[in-house]
Design a protein around this nucleic acid. Structure first.
Length: 206
DNA sequence: GTGCGGATGAACT
DNA sequence: GTTCATCCGCACT
């Protein structure tokens, strides 16, 4: 495994176009080092949440609470929150301070510490469900709410710049998942994924 | 203080 | 396709 990948500098996250950042994160490597244990993989699915104008965002309308305060920090820190009382969802805050944009990481292809990821997921063998979906990948990487507000690139959670996508890998955009409550914004094509990659999550069937 | 429901996953039928 | 797990954020009283 190649962990010599250069961590993405903070400036990458502090740009203002969160949709560009979400797209560009595809193919890069999300890695955690929790208690000395390294796990991680290639990002294959992301979603952009665009601050106060996006009905799907926790910061819609400028809402700022104990939970969403993290979103108003500068780009390059983790926003982790508990969803449905069970699942920890990992986002990266982007933009300058007071611009509450974020990218939700929704799927990774395991590359590092796969056996440990299997163990954390209670799975005997590698299947896409190990890390396809935001709650699943957080469990596989041992990310939880303790990491909310954590600065990336400090040795616990970081994203490494990868060689780039293979020429046959295609990026597609689609509507975000699970945001029906966002009304017209639910249809924005702000979900990005690598076409055909098995570690991309699937929308809930009707 | 109370009540509702969620950026989901997995086990059911 | 349906149901349930399981907790807290957040709006409202």
């Amino acid at each position: 495994m190649d962990l010599s990948l250069t961590p993405i500098p903070e400036q990458f996250y502090q740009r203002t176009e969160v949709t560009d950042i979400a797209r560009e994160l595809l193919g890069m490597h999300l890695v955690t080092r929790i208690g000395g244990d390294i796990t991680g993989g290639k990002i294959v699915e992301t979603e952009a949440y665009r601050g106060i104008t996006d009905r799907a965002s926790h910061a819609y309308g400028g809402r700022r609470t104990a939970r969403t305060g993290t979103l108003y920090s500068h780009g390059g820190i983790a926003y982790v929150y508990l969803c449905y009382g069970i699942h920890h969802l990992f986002n990266i805050v982007t933009g300058p301070e007071d611009t509450p944009h974020a990218v939700l990481i929704r799927g990774i292809e395991p590359l590092y510490g796969v056996d440990l990821m299997l163990s954390r997921r209670n799975m005997p063998s590698l299947k896409p469900q190990i890390s396809a979906g935001p709650g699943a990948l957080s469990k596989a990487l041992a990310i939880d709410r303790r990491h909310n507000g954590l600065e990336l690139n400090r040795g616990e959670i970081w994203i490494g710049d990868a060689p780039g996508l293979d020429s046959k890998e295609e990026i597609i955009s689609s509507a975000r998942i699970g945001v029906a409550y966002a009304k017209e914004d639910a249809l924005l094509p702000w979900r990005f994924s690598l076409k055909g990659n098995p570690f991309v999550s699937r929308p809930r069937p009707k």
